[in-house]
Simulated assay, not measured.
Amino acid sequence: MFIVSLTYQVPLEQVDAFIAEHVEYLDEQYAKGHFILSGRKEPRTGGIIISTVRDRNKLNEVLAQDPFHREGLASYEVTEMVPTKASERLGFLV
């Protein structure tokens, strides 16, 4: 499992121009089972994605499809984690 932290590299006006396309990208990745949670950072400096992709190379391929990546709008910090404990509702992740 991976935690992906996006940080915007350009003004929000430039980011906003690609929000609709980014949401389509997210919808596609959710449908494929690659992402299980995502959202904005507060304050709005980027976002967070939780991915269940198991291979870092595959995740890199998935992230490269993001319009924010393609357009150079955000940098990506990826942290791999191995879940070992979860609440009952999230037990499927362990």
Results as ranks from 00 to 15, higher is better:
Arg56Gln: 11
Arg56Leu: 13
Asn57Tyr: 03
Lys58Val: 03
Lys58Glu: 15
Leu59Phe: 12
Glu61Ala: 15
Glu61Leu: 10
Glu61Pro: 00
Glu61Ser: 15
Val62Ser: 14
Val62Gly: 08
Val62Pro: 00
Leu63Val: 09
Ala64Thr: 02
Ala64Trp: 02
Gln65Trp: 03
Asp66Gln: 10
Pro67Ala: 12
His69Met: 04
Arg70Phe: 06
Arg70Cys: 05
Arg70Pro: 00
Glu71Cys: 06
Glu71Phe: 14
Glu71Gly: 06
Gly72Gln: 10
Gly72Val: 07
Leu73Cys: 05
Leu73Gly: 05
Leu73Asp: 02
Leu73Thr: 03
Ala74Arg: 02
Ala74Val: 13
Ser75Leu: 08
Ser75Trp: 04
Tyr76Asn: 09
Glu77His: 02
Val78Lys: 04
Thr79Gln: 14
Glu80Trp: 06
Met81Arg: 02
Val82Met: 04
Val82Leu: 09
Val82Arg: 05
Pro83Lys: 07
Pro83Cys: 11
Thr84Ile: 05
Lys85Gln: 08
Ala86Asn: 08
Ala86Asp: 08
Ala86Met: 11
Ala86His: 09
Ser87His: 06
Ser87Tyr: 01
Glu88Arg: 10
Glu88His: 11
Glu88Thr: 11
Glu88Ala: 13
Glu88Cys: 04
Glu88Gly: 08
Glu88Leu: 14
Arg89Cys: 06
Arg89Ser: 11
Arg89Asp: 12
Arg89Phe: 13
Leu90Phe: 15
Leu90Ile: 07
Gly91Tyr: 01
Gly91Phe: 01
Phe92Tyr: 14
